[in-house]
Amino acid sequence: MNRIKWRLVPVYVLLVLLLVISIVPFYLVIVNSTHSSFDIVTKLNLWIGGSLRDNYEKMQSNVNIWNGFKNSLLIAVPFTFFTGYFGAMTAYGFAKYRFKGKKGLYWLVLCSMMIPAQLSIVGFYQLNLKLNLLNSYIPFIFPGIANASAVFFLRGIVEQSIPDSMLEAARMEGATEFRIFNRMILPCIMPGVATMCIFNFVTCWNNYMGPLILITDNKKYTMPVMIAMIKGLYLSNYGAMYLAIAIAVVPIIIVYLFLSKYIINGLTIGSDK
């Protein structure tokens, strides 16, 4: 028994090293956000300092970071709701009905999943310019209705977990198709929908290029756009910059502490296909 453990020592060393690499940058962000800029450039800080309040006041004097936080939520929450609800709806339509052109339409969904989204940014910008949607959140929220990967993943889940006999029984009792979907199907596939929603929320929250192009009113900046422009605003005010990054990063870490099991399991839904 002991011999086996000794053999694994180098393995554990490697694993711990990778752990340090993965976590230390975040640790430094949190620690440095509590130190003054002078402390940050003159020594390596490894423990919490006393300048958090000071940094906070400096940070808030230039931009209101919570405004970016609020704006990102205003986009990500409805977007996530749309991907969940309409993703399930489209997936259900493809999984449980037979209609003309279904194969071709589903093929279109799969293709749109492979098409690199950032390549059509000029077209996307011009579209929203013409629709008068610059500085609006609509171009970020409504595409949630047409989220190809959500449809792809949820279709598999609908096919696995909803037997046709269940639908037949509900129809016999006179339920309408939409009632069946809302009252029966959706609750049944809710765990899958929720997993999907976590990922879509994160993707939406992290979206940088879209808001960078469409949003010019700085009151409407989202978190990533705000973080990216901070470098120019605070110059050598490192404490304030670290604090801003900390505010962007810590909520995600906290959520991850609670949901990591679901997130890691959710990652593999798509890849085993």
């Binding site: 279904k102 077209g123 996307f124 579209l127 409504f142 198709e177």
Partner: peptide, 24 residues
């Protein structure tokens, strides 16, 4: 009824997905 379920997807896809690609 399948068409009704997939309709919102394709409406939004046409506007925010397909059109930008074609216009590019």
């Amino acid at each position: 009824y399948g068409y009704f379920f997939i309709l919102p997807y394709f409406l939004i896809f046409a506007v925010f997905g397909l059109f930008p690609i074609l216009y590019t």
